[in-house]
């Protein structure tokens, strides 16, 4: 069986990305050239059920969305640590660690994640229904 250099396995992935984006871009471009263009003021206006738009649409929105963004960053990064751990978990005893070493370590780690979740929960940030939470 033939083997190729390590980095070559990513080559198809890169190609796929290029092709996919080219395809998507091509679609946009093609439809631009194919479709007819007969613009009018009404047509090109913002769609707001036929009314003229009121106010700026990029104004402020609920701070909860920001909260979700922040929580996501934190918890996602925490989740990232679990994948390498999961990959190596079953090999740990073979590396001279005790049977429950991996589990214990993750228990501590998840305890922190859990505390974080509990805190956020208790602070009412996960409560979307009422504004009791202090935001």
């Amino acid at each position: 069986m033939q083997t190729y250099p390590y980095l070559w396995q990513y080559l198809p992935l890169v190609l796929q990305i290029v092709v996919a984006i080219a395809l998507a871009g091509g679609m946009v471009g093609a439809s631009f050239f194919v479709g007819k263009h007969k613009n009018s003021r009404t047509k090109a206006g913002t769609y707001e059920c036929g009314m003229d738009p009121v106010g700026d649409s990029r104004g402020r929105f609920s701070v909860r969305f920001y909260m979700v963004a922040m929580l996501f960053i934190l918890f996602d990064v925490e989740a990232v640590f679990m994948l390498p751990w999961a990959v190596i978990f079953r090999k740990l005893p073979g590396l001279g660690y005790s049977k429950y070493f991996g589990f214990n370590e993750m228990l501590v780690y998840l305890a922190f994640v859990g505390v974080g979740l509990f805190y956020v929960w208790k602070k009412g940030i996960l409560n979307w229904a009422n504004d009791k939470g202090d935001l």
């Binding site: 929580l71 934190l74 990232v80």
Partner: peptide
């Protein structure tokens, strides 16, 4: 790199909170 990314994320969260 892993650590840096994690810390950067934590910083980003705090930073966003402060900016908001």
């Amino acid at each position: 790199v892993f650590f840096v990314m994690v810390v950067a994320a934590a910083e980003a969260a705090v930073g966003l909170a402060i900016i908001i």
